[in-house]
Design a protein around this nucleic acid. Structure first.
Lengths: 229, 229
DNA sequence: TAGCCCCAAACTTTCGAAAGTTCAAGGAAG
DNA sequence: CTTCCTTGAACTTTCGAAAGTTTGGGGCTA
C-alpha cells in the first residue's frame, strides 16, 4: 500500500521530467540521452523511454527515430503558430464556457483568481525564473475560466496548447516584462467580463492576453535562445 | 539498410494496433493484455508497451495503472461530447482554411475529392465493415479541406478528433445507413462551397455532415454495443 | 446461508544487458 | 589540400526474465 491509487514508477519520472523542462532546467533544443536521464532520475532505461514517449505526445519533446530525443526547440515561427492556435481555440472554448457555465463554475473561477492574486510572480530564491506556485496558480485560473464548457476534449486541447506556451513563458521572464504591462489587471478584467457573462468582451480580452506575451517575445528576441542547462 | 528512413519496430506494432482498433478487429472496451498482444504481433512486451502508450495519447486506448489497458469504450455520452468538439474545432479550422488557403491548396482538395469519389464505400470481401481504402480517402479529403490554414497544431487537433470519430463510424456502417442520405453529395457540396470561398456556408455544411452520423448513431443504438472481436 | 479471509494464478511493471545503428575522428588515396 | 573510406565509441532499440500487484475462487467462521 506504499503507492495508493494509481501511481506507477513511470509517472514519477514523467512528472519530474516535465517539471524540469517547463522550469527551464533542461534547455530547449537540448538532447535527452538515456544514460544521463536514467542516472539523473535513478530509474532504468525502459522507464525513461516510456516517460519520453508521453512527453512527445504532449508536445514538450520531439523524437527522431534512432537519433534520440530532444526538448522541443523554440523558434519565432513556432511561437507564431502556437499563438494563433491558442488564440483561436482558447477563445472558442471561453465563449462556450461563458454561455454554458453554471454557478458552481463561477465560484471556482473566483476562487482560482483569488489564489492567483495572492501568489508571488517570481521565486524569491531564484528571481531569474517564475515561481512554480505562480505557474501552477496561473494554469489553474485559466483552466477554471474554460471549465464551464464541460467538454473534456475541448478542455484538453486548450490545456495542451497552454502547456506548450509555458516553455516560452519561462523564457519571457528572463528578458524582463513589458514596461507598463499589468498582468494582474488583465486577469482581473478577464474575470469580470466572464462573471458578467459578456462572452464577446471576454474573448477579446483573452486574445489580447495571449497575444501580448507573444508579441513581446518576438520583438525582444530576434535570435534563438541558446542557454546551457 | 533494411529499414529506410526512420521506421522502428515500435512503429510497426503501433500502426498495426491502430489499424486493428479502427477497423473494429479489436472491440471497444476490450482488454489489451500484454502476453496476447506480444504473441499476436510477434514482438516483445516492451515494444507492445510503448505502442500502447502512444495510442493512449491518441485517445484510442485508455490506461488504468496496474490494471491494464483497454480499447476506448464507446458510449452515447462520449459520442455527444466528441461530436460537439468536432463541430466546434473542425468548423473553426475550415473557416481559417477557406480564408487563407492558396491555389495549391484548392488543387489538393479537388484531387482528394476526386479520389474519394472513385473509391468504393464498402469492402466487397467483407460488407460488414468499411473498406480501408475508403476510410483513408475520406480522411485525406477532410484533411485536404482543412490544410489551407497552414497551422500544424490546429490541423493535428482536428485530425486527432476525427480519428477518434473513426471508431464510431466503424460501428455506424453495421447498423446501416440513414435512408435517403447521400454522403457523396454532402462531400460534393462541401467542396463546392470551399472552392467558392464561401466560409460560412462551408462551415454550415461541415457541421451538418459531422452531426448527421452522430444523430443516426444515437437514435439507432440506445444501448451499448457489445460485440466480441 | 451469508460474509470474510487467504491463497494461487494471471497479469503488469521494472530492470539491465545484448544487439544494432549513427556519428565523427583519423588515415589513406587521388 | 581535398575527398573518401575505415574504424571505434556512444547511444538507441529490443528483448526476456524477475519482482510486485490485482483478481477471483475456495474454504472457514458466524
Amino acid at each position: 500500500m506504499t503507492k495508493s491509487g494509481g501511481a506507477t514508477r513511470t509517472d514519477g519520472i514523467h512528472q519530474a521530467l516535465r517539471a524540469d523542462i517547463l522550469a527551464g532546467r533542461l534547455s530547449p533544443g537540448g538532447r535527452l540521452k538515456f544514460p544521463d536521464l536514467a542516472d539523473r532520475y535513478k530509474v532504468s532505461v525502459g522507464a525513461t523511454r516510456e516517460a519520453l514517449t508521453r512527453l512527445v505526445a504532449e508536445g514538450l519533446v520531439v523524437a527522431r527515430p534512432r537519433l534520440g530525443y530532444l526538448v522541443r526547440p523554440l523558434s519565432q515561427r513556432d511561437l507564431a503558430e502556437l499563438t494563433q492556435a491558442r488564440v483561436e481555440i482558447e477563445s472558442l472554448v471561453l465563449g462556450l464556457s461563458v454561455r454554458e457555465g453554471d454557478t458552481r463554475w463561477e465560484a471556482d473561477a473566483v476562487a482560482a483568481h483569488h489564489l492567483l492574486e495572492r501568489t508571488p510572480y517570481r521565486d524569491p530564491a531564484d528571481p531569474d525564473h517564475l515561481a512554480d506556485e505562480w505557474s501552477q496558480a496561473h494554469a489553474a485560473f485559466h483552466h477554471a475560466l474554460l471549465a464551464g464548457c464541460g467538454n473534456q476534449r475541448l478542455l484538453d486541447a486548450a490545456r495542451s496548447l497552454r502547456q506548450e506556451a509555458e516553455l516560452y513563458r519561462q523564457w519571457s521572464v528572463s528578458i524582463g516584462n513589458e514596461p507598463g504591462r499589468d498582468v494582474a489587471a488583465e486577469h482581473r478584467a478577464l474575470l469580470d467580463a466572464v462573471l458578467a457573462r459578456d462572452a464577446v468582451h471576454a474573448q477579446e480580452l483573452l486574445r489580447d492576453h495571449i497575444a501580448h506575451t507573444a508579441r513581446l517575445l518576438i520583438s525582444c528576441a530576434p535570435e534563438q535562445p541558446d542557454q546551457a542547462g
